[in-house]
Each structure stands twice: as structure tokens, then as C-alpha cells.
């Protein structure tokens, strides 16, 4: 099949600037966590659970100035077509974990919670491209659910380049074949809290790729925002009654 046909259609039938089916739920595991969320971006599916802010188990983990974020990323063996055991110490997994920790260290108002630990557990159930973006979005929602103060939403999106054409929200097949850019945008701004480029994109093309990725992130922010508001309304109506 053609990755991007001359008629302007991608391998799954989308056009260049269309995002995949995006579904999100907040407060999915109210009993076992302080905050939780579930995200589907196409066939990439992630669950996120947040514990904390809480006392760290070890004194040495405590930072007297701000909260410590600890991300645990686990990818299910059945998340890809070929079942494969993934170890947490795999280089790529460590890289993703640190990227997520650094991104949120800046977006969460950590200074409000000194000497505490915020633990975030991410479970990737299914992978079809854009795993880092889905994890970021899931974390944002779960942290909001946990009531942790943040400066704004961090909404993440991927984009790639096929010859001259920037493509938004890459699925797994596309990601295998093109260089992929993942960004996390703060709220409705054009400020980035996350930028990861796998392989390379020529500098003169980067701008166009970034532009659609930012536009895509804004769309995701709005979708997440309406879910948060929906949930908020349910909660407040319960409180009222």
C-alpha cells in the first residue's frame, strides 16, 4: 500500500492534517489511586494511575525544595503484534521514562509540594505509534484528576515528514517508515515542554512539521479539556445533590 498516495490519502485513509480517533476518560480507577486516566489515540492505548503527593518511602528520595516525580512505565507484552517481553531497563524505556519525568517536573508546580513523592504508573496496553505522546496526555489527565497543581495542560502529538508533506499523528506503520517528531505543548500556547525527534528532519522542513504538530496538540488539549469539564460537571452535580 502507498504510505501517502499522490491523491493525498494516507495508508489508513486519513489526510495529511487529520488526527486519529482520540478518546479519553478521567478518574477511571477512583478506588485504587489518587488520580487516573485512560487514553486511546488510534490503536495506542494507555492507562495512567497517580499516587500522591505522598511521603517518600525513603528519606533519601525527599527533596526539601520541591516534589519528586517518579514515572514507572510498563509496556504490556501483548501491546504489539509480536509478543515480546520488554525489560524496564531497556535503553529506550529508560529514555522515555526520563523524558516524561523531565517534562512534568517543569509543568507541575513542584514547589508547592516539598519533601513529597508523586508516583505515576503508566501501562501501555496497545501500541500503534505515538506512544510517548499518548503517555504524556494520559499523565496530564491523571495528574489533573489527582488534583496536583499544574501551570496548564501538557498536550502531546506526533508529526512526521513524507517527502515534502508533513503528516500529523503518525500510526505505527508510518512511524516505522518516517522520521517522527513528538512534541508536548503547554496549553494553547506555542511553548514546548517536550520535543523528541527520532531520526532526522531537514531544518528547512522542520517548521512546517512543527506547525501542524502544534495545531494537532491544541486539538488534543481541547478534547482533554472537554473531558475534564464533563467529569467536573458530574462531580459537582453529585456534590450539589
Amino acid at each position: 500500500m502507498e504510505l501517502y498516495s499522490p491523491e493525498g490519502l494516507r495508508i489508513d485513509g486519513r489526510r495529511w492534517n487529520e488526527i486519529r480517533n482520540f478518546e479519553c476518560r478521567i478518574n477511571t480507577h477512583p478506588n485504587s489511586s489518587d488520580g487516573s486516566s485512560y487514553i486511546e489515540q488510534g490503536n495506542t492505548k494507555v492507562i495512567c494511575v497517580v499516587q500522591g503527593p505522598m511521603e517518600p518511602a525513603l528519606r533519601s528520595q525527599a527533596n526539601s525544595n520541591e516534589a519528586t516525580l517518579e514515572v514507572n512505565l510498563s509496556v504490556a507484552n501483548f501491546s504489539t503484534t509480536e509478543r515480546k517481553k520488554r525489560s524496564k531497563s531497556e535503553k529506550r524505556m529508560v529514555q522515555l521514562k526520563t523524558t516524561l519525568e523531565r517534562t512534568f517536573q517543569q509543568s507541575v508546580m513542584c514547589n508547592l509540594y516539598p519533601r513529597t513523592l508523586i508516583r505515576i504508573d503508566l501501562h501501555v496496553l496497545s501500541q500503534d505509534g505515538g506512544m510517548l505522546a499518548a503517555c504524556t496526555n494520559a499523565m496530564t489527565l491523571a495528574l489533573i484528576d489527582a488534583g496536583v497543581s499544574m501551570y496548564d495542560y501538557v498536550a502531546a502529538m506526533t508529526a512526521g515528514l513524507h517527502d515534502q508533506t508533513p503528516l500529523l499523528d503518525m500510526n505505527g506503520l508510518e512511524e516505522n517508515d518516517m522520521s517522527t517528531l513528538t512534541i508536548g505543548v503547554i496549553g494553547k500556547s506555542e511553548k514546548l515542554s517536550l520535543l523528541m525527534l527520532e531520526d532526522k528532519i531537514p531544518l528547512d522542513r522542520l517548521e512546517s512539521v512543527l506547525a501542524i504538530a502544534i495545531a494537532g496538540s491544541h486539538k488534543i488539549r481541547d478534547l482533554m479539556d472537554s473531558e475534564v469539564r464533563r467529569h467536573g460537571n458530574i462531580r459537582s452535580s453529585k456534590l450539589a445533590s
Binding site: D12, G13, R14, R20, G42, N43, T81, D128, N171
Partner: peptide, 11 residues
């Protein structure tokens, strides 16, 4: 045997 699931968008 391997099961493959792909999204398919209609327009």
C-alpha cells in the same frame, strides 16, 4: 498465526 488490527478511516 498473528492477529493484526489496523484502523481504517472512511470519508
Amino acid at each position: 498465526a498473528q492477529k493484526i488490527v489496523r484502523e481504517h478511516y472512511l470519508r
